[in-house]
Simulated assay, not measured.
Amino acid sequence: MNSITLGDVEVIRVEETHGPVGLTADQFIPETPDGTWQRHEPLLVPDHLDPTDQLVQVAMQSWVLRSDGRTILIDTGVGNDKDRPLVPVWNQRTDGGYLTNLERAGIRAEDVDLVVNTHLHVDHVGWNTRLVDGEWVPTFPNATYLMPRADFEFWNPDKNPNVAGGVNEFVYEDSVAPVHAAGQVQLWEDEYLIDAALRLTAAPGHTPGSSVLTLESGTDRALFAGDLLHSPVQIPQPELNSCFCEDPEAARAVRRQLLGWAADHSALLLPAHFSGAGALTIEHAGAGFAVGAWAPFATL
């Protein structure tokens, strides 16, 4: 299956790509104590870690929600035709498969009502725009794009010179500013209610504007976790951060808090980048957490 229904909300998984992004496990999560990856191999191999070369395996994907008569797209992957010099596998991509996969799921670009960027990292905003006659235009012409104000300001290179030479170089210019110029961006802070079932909440740490989307409908609960975690190794050891976390202490605190909420509420956890099943439940386990059960989604 590539979709499930939670309460009154349909949830669809649409993949852009999956596989290695050129970082070993110790590069991706550099604070990991010796032996950690080997100890957790049953949790990680083969979907999240290649044991031969120790390369982390990740998915670039969107979660699409049909709720209260609207189509809501959570995060938009890497995109095509973008200059991404620090990540060769993403640089000037031309595969074209993402929009086709959306259409296979019954979702045309013009049907999307809301785009939620959980944060404004390179791999969450790429399909915000597409290249048409040499100009970046919004991919989803009828959508409002919900962007956290803190990230909108932080990643603006006119305000933050550290963007130059980093993984988010050129991202604001080609994937954020054109949507804002088109009048399709709504900035939000702290909390934003999408409808009676869906709520965006600030979860800063990974980036200043990182957020999560909570679904509460009927007896069902789900947490669309963005980059709260990148690898299942962070479930038993939530103190571990990726190399891309801007505020390490805040990232640890919010990860532990939200994993605890998921465990307490029997909520389905849907991270942005988990390959394989893609979704799971969480249980308390000593000082950390454990996987309760995987909830397998096929991909489109």
Rank of each mutant, 00 (worst) to 15 (best):
Y172A: 01
L23V: 09
S210Y: 00
L146W: 01
W63G: 11
F170E: 12
L240K: 01
T94Q: 14
V171I: 11
N241I: 08
T36R: 11
G218A: 05
L215S: 07
W261I: 05
T207E: 13
S210I: 00
E173N: 13
E41H: 15
T94L: 04
T36D: 03
P138C: 06
G22D: 09
L187V: 03
N241F: 00
T207P: 00
G260E: 11
G35W: 01
G22W: 09
L49S: 03
W188F: 11
Q257L: 10
D47H: 14
G19S: 07
H206Q: 14
R84G: 01
R108A: 12
L258Q: 11
F297M: 04
V14I: 14
F289M: 07
F289C: 07
S210M: 03
R255I: 06
H119S: 14
Y98C: 04
A222M: 06
V185D: 03
I74P: 02
V125Y: 02
E135H: 13
C245E: 12
D95M: 03
A25N: 10
H121N: 14
L114H: 12
V56K: 08
F289G: 10
P238L: 01
E41I: 07
A250T: 05
E41S: 14
E103T: 13
N156E: 11
V125R: 05
D227C: 02
L240G: 04
F170N: 15
G166C: 02
S211L: 00
E173Q: 15
P157S: 04
L99F: 06
P161F: 00
G96T: 04
R66D: 09
L44E: 11
